[in-house]
Computed example of a mutant assay.
Amino acid sequence: MRLKYIVYYLILMFSNCTPALAQSTARVVRVKDGDTYVFRSGARVFTVRLTKVDAPEMKQAFGFTAYQCVNQLLTGKAVEYDSVGKDLYGRVLVSVKLDGKRLDSLLIRNGWAWHYIAYDTETMLDNLMNEAIMTHSGLWACGVNHVCPPWLYRSYNERNRAKYCKGCTNYLLTQK
């Protein structure tokens, strides 16, 4: 009898400690940039932001190219997502799966975004970014010395952007 109570107590305790992830589905209506999209779920239309990546800004080197690649990949597609809250701009923070594959992994592996290490410490994403750097994929076409992370780009004024965020002038960068 006592064992039943202990087992019941443990089940109750662990069920409260592990929150259930509410996975939802939506269709990608629009890609705003490499890491920000507009979703439609039923009648609801809302803007989302990926949580573990940071893609180049549209005016930043490789930003438009990253946008084009992600736009081609996602627009009109049905995706699964888990929301984890909202950011300062009212966007829903999400992790996304496309055809059962994690979108953050895909973006990092193709060199379309950085692993956002300020907000995530997942080793697998670090390894994928290092792989993209070693193979000169996407924004890494000219190596690590010719890229400016978006979090620095956003913090710089125009003068420092021109000085430190020149980007890659390699012809291959515009072709990938």
Rank of each mutant, 00 (worst) to 15 (best):
L3V: 13
Y9W: 15
Y9N: 04
L10P: 04
I11W: 09
S15V: 14
C17A: 10
C17M: 14
A20H: 12
A20Q: 11
S24N: 15
R27Q: 11
V28F: 06
V28M: 10
V31N: 05
K32I: 15
D33N: 15
T36N: 10
V45I: 12
F46A: 01
T47W: 11
K52Q: 13
A55L: 05
E57D: 13
E57R: 07
K59A: 10
A61F: 07
F62D: 00
G63D: 07
G63A: 04
T65R: 11
C69N: 10
V70W: 01
L73H: 03
L74E: 01
L74C: 08
T75V: 09
T75D: 07
K77V: 09
K77D: 11
K77W: 09
E80D: 10
Y81K: 03
V84A: 13
G85P: 04
K86V: 10
L93F: 14
L93E: 10
V96G: 03
D99R: 08
K101D: 13
L103W: 03
D104W: 01
S105F: 09
R109G: 13
N110G: 09
N110Q: 15
H115G: 06
I117N: 01
T123V: 15
M124G: 12
L125F: 07
N130F: 14
N130H: 15
N130R: 14
E131F: 11
A132L: 03
A132D: 01
A132W: 04
I133C: 00
S137D: 06
L139K: 07
L139S: 01
A141P: 00
A141K: 05
V144I: 09
V144A: 02
N145R: 15
V147P: 00
P149H: 11
P149K: 04
P149V: 02
P149Q: 09
P149C: 07
L152N: 07
R154A: 12
N157Y: 09
E158V: 06
E158W: 15
E158M: 02
N160E: 14
N160P: 00
R161S: 02
A162L: 05
K166Y: 02
K166S: 11
C168F: 03
C168K: 00
T169N: 14
N170A: 04
N170W: 15
Y171N: 12
Y171W: 07
Y171I: 12
L173E: 08
Q175V: 05
K176M: 07
